[in-house]
Write a protein that binds this DNA or RNA. Structure first.
Ligand SMILES: Nc1ccn([C@H]2C[C@H](O)[C@@H](COP(=O)(O)OP(=O)(O)OP(=O)(O)O)O2)c(=O)n1
Ligand SMILES: [Mn+2]
Length: 745
DNA sequence: CGGGGAATGT
DNA sequence: ACATTCC
């Protein structure tokens, strides 16, 4: 293995990540402003800005064409353009809705979707492109980096590893995605296609708005060299760029050339490596599918609040908004965090555990007593962070729910406590409601502290994630039209997914289990019953009651004593049932056609662009060698050397010359767009947007509650980031948060 | 006249 | 609980 590695070492340095992946980055055009235009078409041809308090956070392209800039003060913007129409965007709810819709559309292409803020998504479509291994290179859709300078499209693949065609296919998929987003939501966006996240993101804004750009690997050197500030590299923020500036590093070129030992005086080893890599366009960070939000919060900056009555009114308003958000989300929050900012001071927060019984009826049925209980908690907590006996002056109030019950977690805290029932409630079980209402008898099972999950090695976990994703839900409307699906293999994969929108999810099984007990559920045809059920509201499923209403006796895990279980209050039983993990076996539908019919094609010509690529690689070699002198063995090299054992050589100087399949346009009229939300609230039940209201209200109440518990704003994929770090902070050197964005695994 | 919000690391 | 970073 070592010998094998040594043999490939040079080649590896030449092609650090082989540009084997295909990544799409999408970025919505002037997001908030465009949402407002979609909601009110009268604004379409007028200059529109969206403000939050006195700041205009963004404006549409009409306004920009007239000279208005993002992030202007409202006063300045209006002075500059009196006809500017300003809309208040302080409540992000509509933007969250469109954001979730768009992420869900991306998820219909691949489960590997990573959100960044509300208006950006990364998609790793490597698998999809791979299953589509033929392309006609003349068919690139949209722009490619360099076409501004009228660089010609190459007449053949200068790299010959196949990346050329992957980018072309990626441009088709990006186009398909953008079209789907537009037809479904009316929203336009830009897209970038590259072989890593950095490049995809860098080029996505190259042609704006409503355009897309791909970058070929041999243009990377030009692209990075064209960046005049290191701040243009995502992940290098103001703090990092200030430090770099002190070292005399301003441009990306500076960063390429700076002695890495200079960087080492300011950054830890990992960060140095990543910085250097980024400067050459190397970025091995994987697309991390998002879990559902780990926190939901609302806040409001105010001119001045100085009386308790004002505080109460403001928190009530915030709570009202937050409860709607949580209702749409469907999960029960485990903690409440309240925050306040004193004038001339910084933000202070206090976080406290929340008794689940606050939401005993679920998060979708909120009555006044629930609200007042929460208000009591909020205000009593507020008193602890603000000296209310003295005069006070506040400029911001906020509340947030966090630590949602995570049904997909291997063992939730409450279930763990139940299993170790020798070790029941103790002093740290005191909860918010206990303190607030002096009602300590009710619930002793709610954990005050949630222990971290067991340590999977991060590598293997990452590996697991990527094994879970193949094809399946991916690109259905793009690729299922091809005849590829007839040659699919079927692979059994043990899945820990717990995702209602994902076929085979255990929550779905649980739901189906309930249905099986009480209802007859008949799926009309085909496979994706989960998707149909809550997806488009177009399912023809039929439901019919059974004649008897026999009680449901759920299957309990083996380590749970059923007598003890039955002795528990019903509320607790329900909590426990939700917490028991069910592992399902999924059938993944994978086209494993990895045989690339290749015609050998030697590269004889070498354009100027290719030469610049070589120059770039030479610099990379230098910097890699520098790094290696003081490093044992970089993690990514170890991983790659392992990967090499079972995959093709990194660069095989061969090209697939078969013709590209046609990608036809069959856009199934798409799921509920964001427009029909206001019709889905009856009484005090707020229906999640992905649940068909008519079907929902035809169901028995218990089943309704099940659905409410399971529904989601957008599909959850993977558990949140874990703490895999680290004890080797030798010196007093910065381990910048940059690492979060540069992290490979 | 410095929004509103989420993730991550210490 | 706070500090940074991103949008
Ligand atoms: N500091 C920031 C940056 C952005 N946003 C919000 C407003 C934007 O509408 C949205 C997306 O940010 P972008 O940077 O992508 O800006 P736009 O989408 O508005 O414009 P563009 O067309 O340039 O992408 O996020 C924000 O609230 N605060
Ligand atoms: Mn945008």
């Amino acid at each position: 293995m070592d010998a094998n590695f040594d043999h490939l070492d040079g080649e590896w340095n030449l092609l650090p990540d082989q540009h084997k992946r295909t990544i799409i980055h999408i970025d919505i055009d002037c997001f908030y402003a465009q949402v407002e235009m979609v909601r009110n078409p009268e604004l379409r041809d007028k200059p529109v800005g969206v403000k939050q308090k006195d700041l205009m956070v963004t404006c549409n392209y009409k306004a920009r064409s007239l000279g208005v800039k993002k992030s202007m003060w409202v006063r300045d913007a209006l002075k500059f353009l009196p006809s500017l129409i300003l809309i208040d965007g302080s409540d992000l709810s509509p933007y969250r809705q469109y954001s979730a819709d768009i992420t869900n559309l991306a998820l219909s292409f691949t489960p590997l979707v990573e959100r960044l803020g509300l208006d950006e998504n990364f998609l790793d479509i490597t698998n999809q492109v791979h299953d589509y291994s033929a392309a006609n290179h003349k068919d690139l859709v949209g722009h490619f980096y360099g076409d501004r300078e009228r660089n010609p499209m190459p007449s053949f693949d200068p790299c010959a590893c196949g990346c050329f065609k992957r980018m072309v296919i990626g441009s088709h998929i990006a186009s398909k995605l953008r079209k789907k987003i537009f037809e479904s939501t009316g929203i336009t966006c830009c897209a970038g296609v590259g072989h890593n996240k950095l490049l995809a993101k860098l080029v996505s804004g190259y042609h704006k708005p409503n355009e897309q750009t791909a970058i070929f690997p041999w243009q990377v050197y030009d692209l990075l060299n064209s960046l005049e500030s290191v701040r243009m590299i995502p992940g290098i923020g103001s703090a990092t760029s200030k430090i770099l500036g002190d070292l005399g590093v301003t441009s990306v070129k500076d960063l390429q050339l700076v002695d890495i030992n200079m960087l080492r005086t300011k950054f830890d080893e990992e960060t140095c490596k990543k910085l250097k890599d980024m400067s050459f366009g190397i970025d091995e960070a994987v697309v991390r599918p998002n879990s559902r939000p780990q926190s939901l919060g609302v806040e409001d900056a105010v001119k001045r609040i100085s009386t308790m009555n004002e505080v109460k009114v403001k928190y009530e308003e915030l709570l009202e908004r937050l409860l709607k958000l949580v209702a749409e989300d469907g999960r029960k929050p485990g903690t409440l965090k309240i925050s306040a900012r004193k004038r001339y001071g910084h933000r202070e927060t206090k976080q406290l555990p929340l008794l689940l019984s606050v939401f005993s009826k679920g998060v979708n049925i909120i009555n006044d007593s629930v609200k007042s209980a929460l208000m009591d908690i909020i205000l009593s907590t507020f008193h602890k962070i603000i000296e209310t006996s003295k005069p006070f002056e506040l400029t911001l109030l906020g509340i947030a729910f966090t630590k949602f019950t995570d049904y997909s977690s291997e063992t939730t805290s409450i279930s763990r406590f139940f299993q170790k029932r020798s070790r029941v409630a103790d002093e740290n079980m005191e909860t918010a409601l206990d303190k607030s209402q002096k009602n300590s008898s009710a619930n002793k099972f709610l954990p005050a502290v949630k222990k971290p999950r067991h340590d999977l090695s991060f590598d293997s976990e990452r590996c697991l994630e990527n094994n879970l994703i193949p094809v399946e839900s991916a690109c259905s409307d793009v690729f299922l039209e091809t005849d590829k699906c007839e040659e699919n293999n079927f692979i059994q994969v043990e899945s820990t997914f717990n995702n209602t929108l994902s076929p085979g999810a255990s929550n779905l099984e649980k739901l189906n289990s309930v249905i099986d007990k009480e209802m007859t559920y008949r799926e009309p045809s085909g496979s994706a019953s989960a998707l149909d059920f809550q997806g488009n509201g177009k399912n023809n499923c039929t439901y019919s009651r059974l004649t008897e209403d026999s009680e449901i006796m759920p299957d309990l895990p083996n380590d749970v004593d059923s007598d003890v279980f039955n002795s528990l209050p019903k509320v607790i039983q329900e909590e426990l049932l939700l917490s028991f993990k069910t592992t399902s076996t999924r059938t993944l539908n994978s086209t494993s056609n990895r045989n690339i019919a290749t015609n050998q094609k030697t590269i004889l010509e070498c354009s100027a662009k290719v030469r610049s690529c070589v120059e770039s690689f030479e610099n990379q070699i230098r910097h890699d060698q520098n790094v290696k002198t003081t490093e044992k063995l970089p993690k990514h090299l170890r991983n790659k050397s392992h990967g090499l054992d079972e995959s093709q050589p990194s660069c095989s100087y061969s090209v697939d010359s078969s013709e590209m399949n046609n990608i036809t346009d069959h856009l199934t009229s798409c799921s509920s767009s964001s427009s029909d939300k206001h019709t889905r609230s009856r009484g005090n039940i707020i229906l999640p947007k992905d649940v068909d209201a008519d079907v929902f209200y035809a169901l028995p109440e218990e089943l309704q509650n099940e659905i409410l518990k399971e529904s989601k704003t957008y599909q959850p994929i993977i558990s949140p980031q874990k703490n895999q770090k680290s004890c080797n902070n030798k010196k007093g050197i910065q381990s910048s948060p940059l690492l979060k964005y540069l992290k490979k695994l």
